Simulated assay, not measured.
Amino acid sequence: MKKLILVLICLFSLQAQAQKVDDKQAVLNLLEKQRADWNKGDVEAYMQGYWKSDSLLFVGKSGPTYGWQKTLDNYKKGYPDKAAMGFLIFGIKKVEFLTKDKAFVLGSWNVKREKDELKGYFTLLLRKINGVWKVVVDHSS
């Protein structure tokens, strides 16, 4: 009986480990898709990685913004065209799962434009909503 229990514990542990690997790849894929959409100049597609809710929280240099639409409007105002958007690079430093459906990401961002370069860091809180990872809090500086 003890051996059976140990085998079951090992199986559940392996399954949980495999799930974490799959979820980490899904989070990284989401961020890569956002980066690629940004570099195409498609801010609407970029925003699909965010939770489409009035409860979405984005914190930037101007303070907190609540809501998906308001965040999109701010992006469009700050980055009105492809030239303003430049070329985005992410440097992912850490992906940590807080629960099975919540993840924390720490990373850097760098936007190269023809005449200048912007850079900073971000922390993200993601939630798995209906089986899909979405950014629910973004603090970028």
Score class of each variant (00 low, 15 high):
residue 75 Y to T: 08
residue 20 K to G: 00
residue 81 D to I: 08
residue 27 V to E: 04
residue 85 M to H: 11
residue 104 F to D: 04
residue 122 F to N: 13
residue 78 G to K: 11
residue 57 L to T: 03
residue 105 V to H: 09
residue 107 G to F: 10
residue 94 K to N: 15
residue 78 G to I: 02
residue 70 K to T: 12
residue 86 G to T: 09
residue 72 L to N: 04
residue 64 P to K: 06
residue 115 K to Q: 13
residue 52 K to D: 10
residue 20 K to Y: 00
residue 117 E to I: 01
residue 20 K to P: 00
residue 33 K to F: 12
residue 106 L to R: 07
residue 42 D to W: 00
residue 96 E to L: 14
residue 20 K to S: 02
residue 26 A to C: 03
residue 80 P to A: 04
residue 17 Q to K: 07
residue 61 K to L: 05
residue 23 D to H: 13
residue 89 I to S: 15
residue 72 L to M: 05
residue 30 L to E: 10
residue 121 Y to N: 08
residue 46 Y to S: 00
residue 33 K to S: 10
residue 124 L to H: 12
residue 44 E to H: 04
residue 126 L to K: 03
residue 74 N to T: 12
residue 34 Q to K: 11
residue 55 S to Y: 03
residue 21 V to W: 03
residue 33 K to Q: 11
residue 43 V to K: 02
residue 73 D to K: 09
residue 111 V to N: 13
residue 56 L to R: 07
residue 46 Y to T: 00
residue 59 V to Q: 00
residue 78 G to H: 09
residue 52 K to V: 04
residue 57 L to Q: 05
residue 101 D to R: 04
residue 118 L to E: 12
residue 104 F to W: 08
residue 69 Q to F: 10
residue 81 D to E: 06
residue 61 K to S: 09
residue 32 E to M: 13
residue 33 K to P: 01
residue 89 I to C: 14
residue 98 L to V: 15
residue 113 R to P: 13
residue 21 V to P: 04
residue 20 K to L: 05
residue 89 I to Y: 14
residue 95 V to G: 09
residue 20 K to R: 07
residue 31 L to Y: 06
residue 60 G to E: 01
residue 60 G to H: 01
residue 111 V to Q: 12
residue 68 W to Q: 07
residue 119 K to M: 08
residue 16 A to Y: 09
residue 125 L to K: 01
residue 111 V to A: 14
residue 68 W to H: 12
residue 37 D to L: 06
residue 118 L to H: 06
residue 49 G to R: 00
residue 100 K to Y: 01
residue 117 E to K: 09
residue 64 P to E: 06
residue 28 L to A: 11
residue 41 G to V: 02
residue 103 A to Q: 02
residue 79 Y to H: 08
residue 117 E to D: 02
residue 44 E to G: 02
residue 41 G to M: 05
residue 98 L to K: 13
residue 31 L to W: 08
residue 116 D to Y: 05
residue 112 K to V: 10
residue 70 K to C: 06
residue 21 V to F: 03
residue 111 V to I: 15
residue 92 I to D: 02
residue 30 L to Q: 10
residue 97 F to T: 02
residue 125 L to P: 01
residue 91 G to V: 15
residue 102 K to L: 14
residue 119 K to G: 08
residue 34 Q to W: 08
residue 110 N to C: 09
residue 66 Y to R: 15
residue 116 D to I: 08
residue 38 W to I: 03
residue 118 L to Y: 07
residue 38 W to C: 04
residue 113 R to V: 11
residue 41 G to W: 03
residue 122 F to Y: 15
residue 58 F to M: 07
residue 66 Y to T: 13
residue 105 V to Q: 11
residue 39 N to E: 08
